[in-house]
């Protein structure tokens, strides 16, 4: 009996609209590739990310959180 070893984490990104969200768009425009388990929430500034948002993500089952801005 085999055990599925593939780890497919849920990664939540908080991206600043003016820089890293635009950067994520640029990655798309440039047709770069990255795994499909990264999901981005757009924020107006990384300073908008309340620590409670990060904790909530982990609480709800996220495996990783990326705050970038």
């Amino acid at each position: 009996m085999s055990i599925a070893t593939e780890f497919n984490p849920i990664i939540v990104g908080f991206n600043c609209n003016w820089c890293s969200y635009a950067g994520a768009d640029l990655a798309g425009v440039s047709r770069m590739k990255y795994p499909a388990n990264v999901r981005v929430i757009r924020v107006p500034c990384s300073g908008r990310v309340n620590p409670s948002f990060v904790l909530r993500a982990f609480q709800k089952g996220a495996d990783g959180v990326l705050v970038s801005g």
Binding site: I10, I41, V43, P44, R48, G61
Partner: peptide, 28 residues
Amino acid sequence: TVACRAGAANLKGFTNQQVLAEVDTLCR
């Protein structure tokens, strides 16, 4: 909004309630 300990400051269009709802749905 992050600095406000009382939770009195909220950002219209990106409220705490809205972002938390987004987080909850994405992690499901």
